[in-house]
Computed example of a mutant assay.
Amino acid sequence: MTSKWRRLTDRLTGKTEPEPLWTEGVPDHLDVPIREWLYDVLSHYDMAQPVAVRLKLPSRILKARDPYAELAVLDDPKNPMLRLEVIDATLGCVQQALQGAAWQHIQTAASYVRQLEGILREGDSAFTVSEDGSGLERRMDETLHATYDKAVEAGASKADTAANHLRAAFTEAYGIKPDPSAAYSRAIKAVEAVANPLFLPNAPEPTLGKVRAHLDQGRHKYEMVIADKTGAPADIDAIVAIVSLLWHGQRDRHEGGPTSAPVTLEAAETAVHTAAILVHWISSDSIRKK
């Protein structure tokens, strides 16, 4: 969610377009709030060493008189994402340190997370805190995020692994260091987690490709809950097309072929949202046997 606030001059002139998001690093207007937040969290949880080690930072950071202050203002003109990486690593280290901690300590950490999210949102940063508070991710359009949330919820009702794979796919696609190949692979696994048991319950080695073939060859056996233009249940052509798109689009599944190619970030993001739709439809019985 981005900030809903508008400048007085924008309100007076009727401007309704949202402010552009800051897509790289920590802009000047967020420098002080971020610096103060980082210092508070790093010092409160004594996280200078874990963060410096995780990011493989030079030893001068920990040798400094105040390592927390050094980390809080750390910048590198050659790596404008460095401050965001420090924030991301700090969130991850705190999350790891709090595993099994008392309730009040977990609540304090949650308060820090809410404070950071408020800073990023009001400052129109393109980054936000991940759902589990363990790191940063790129901010997604609210409508798309709502679709993703519904898919995770629906997938979890059928198989925990579907929801887990979908969350992992989202993190790999929208994290501050995206891994398109991993995101695409996880997206397919999320769909397989709900589709394989439903369509190929007895198959020894079910895959999304086999699900696609099963549906393609058995179109007459299934229907959609949504109606077609005649008012009858629609056929499953759309499902077959979407599954085929997702399956065939993973061009890095095998190496050495004439159409093999690395997965782009844009393709990975599309795959994640395609998988979310399929997981939601399959989990909510939008496709059924006749």
Rank of each mutant, 00 (worst) to 15 (best):
H29V: 12
L30P: 07
L30N: 03
V32K: 13
V32I: 12
I34H: 03
W37V: 06
W37L: 05
W37Q: 02
Y39E: 14
V41L: 01
V41P: 05
H44K: 09
Y45D: 14
D46G: 05
A48V: 03
A48S: 03
P50S: 07
P50A: 00
V51Y: 00
A52S: 12
A52N: 08
V53H: 08
R54Y: 08
K56C: 10
P58T: 14
S59R: 15
S59N: 15
S59F: 11
R60E: 12
R60Y: 14
I61P: 07
L62Q: 00
L62T: 03
K63M: 05
A64Q: 07
D66A: 09
P67A: 02
P67T: 01
Y68W: 07
E70D: 06
A72T: 02
L74F: 02
L74A: 00
L74D: 04
N79W: 04
M81P: 01
R83D: 05
R83L: 02
L84N: 00
V86H: 00
I87P: 01
D88K: 04
D88M: 05
T90Q: 04
L91P: 00
C93W: 06
V94P: 11
V94S: 07
Q95C: 08
Q95P: 09
Q96W: 11
A97H: 07
Q99L: 06
G100I: 11
W103Y: 13
Q104M: 15
I106S: 11
Q107C: 09
T108C: 13
T108M: 11
T108Y: 07
A110G: 09
A110S: 14
A110V: 12
Y112Q: 15
Y112I: 14
Y112T: 10
